[in-house]
Design a binder for these strands. Structure first.
Lengths: 150, 150
DNA sequence: TATTGTTATACTCTATAACTATA
DNA sequence: TATAGTTATAGAGTATAACAATA
C-alpha cells in the first residue's frame, strides 16, 4: 500500500541530475520549437549570441566558451555563414586564424530570436518567483563549477 | 571597459536552460565515471533502479516512466539481462508482454551503485545547503511540468 | 483491429585522429 | 615544432516505420 502510492522513479527523483535531465529535455524541445521560425537551433543561437557580444573572436575561443570541440564548430559556422548571419575573416596578424563577426542581418535576427528565447524562458519558469529563478541559476552554476574541479 | 569585464556568454547566462545544459554536462560525465566500475551507464542505472522499485513492470511502462521510446529500451535491457542483473518473463495473462524483475545480483549491484550515486550527488551539490538543494530539485520539477503542458 | 516487444534505420550530438597552412 | 581551422569518422542518444506474435 505504501508501494502503490510511490512513483516508480521516486528513488531517482532524489537526485538533482535526474530532475535536470528531465527538465532540460522539456527546455530543449520548447526552445528548438521557438527558434525554428528563425532557422536557428539551440547551438546555432548560442554561437550567434556569443559572436555578437564578442566581435572578432576566433573559432578556437568560441569552441572554448561554448564547451565544444573545434571540429564540431565547423559545420555550425558554415550554416550561420551560408545563412548570411556571420562572416569569417582571415586575420592579417595570423593568417591561420579567422575572426568571427555578425552581419547586419545577423544582428537583426539575433535580437528577434533573443525576444523569442526570453518568452520561452518565461514560459518554462512560470510559477517560480524571480528569486526562485535566480536561485535556480545560481545553484546550477555551483554544480557546473563543482564538476569542473574534477 | 564594461565590455572587457563581461564574460562572452553573459547574455546566455541569463537563461536557466543554458545553465542547465552546462551543469548537466558536468553531472553526466561525473556520474558515468562513478557508474563505470559497476558496468553501468546513466540510463542503465536508472532502468535498474526503476525495475527494482516496481517489480514485474512491463517494458512499455518502463519506457513511459523513463521517457524514452520502446525501441531504444530493447538493447538496454538486453545489456542488463546479459549482465545477469534483470530477467524478462513472459506473462501468463498476456503472452505478448514481459515482466521485468531484478535478480539477486542486480539488487546487490543496485545498492552499491546507489551509494556511489549518492556520493556523486554530494560532490556535485557541495556548497549548497540542504534547503538550496531541495529548492533546486523543486524548481527543476516546475520547469519539467511547464514543459509537459505544451 | 489494436498492442507488446522487436528490427531496421536515420538523424543529431559529441569526441578523436590526422591533415593543411601557417607560425 | 606548434597552432588554427578543417576533414573524416565513429560512437552515443534519440526518433519513426514496420513487422511478428498475441490480444
Amino acid at each position: 500500500m505504501a508501494q502503490a502510492d510511490r512513483a516508480p522513479d521516486a528513488t531517482l527523483r532524489r537526485f538533482s541530475g535526474y530532475g535536470m535531465k528531465r527538465a532540460f529535455n522539456m527546455v530543449q524541445s520548447d526552445l528548438n520549437a521557438a527558434l525554428k521560425p528563425f532557422g536557428l537551433r539551440m547551438i546555432t543561437f548560442s554561437a550567434l549570441v556569443v559572436i555578437r557580444d564578442a566581435p572578432g573572436l576566433r573559432q578556437a575561443r568560441l569552441a572554448e566558451v561554448l564547451q565544444m570541440e573545434k571540429p564540431n564548430l565547423v559545420a555550425l559556422l558554415d550554416e550561420l555563414e551560408r545563412a548570411g548571419l556571420i562572416t569569417r575573416t582571415r586575420l592579417a596578424e595570423d593568417r591561420r586564424a579567422h575572426a568571427l563577426d555578425v552581419t547586419g542581418a545577423g544582428i537583426t535576427l539575433c535580437a528577434r530570436a533573443l525576444a523569442a528565447v526570453d518568452a520561452h524562458e518565461s514560459r518554462m519558469t512560470e510559477g517560480l518567483t524571480p528569486e526562485e529563478r535566480a536561485a535556480l541559476i545560481r545553484a546550477l552554476r555551483v554544480i557546473e563549477t563543482n564538476g569542473g574541479e574534477t
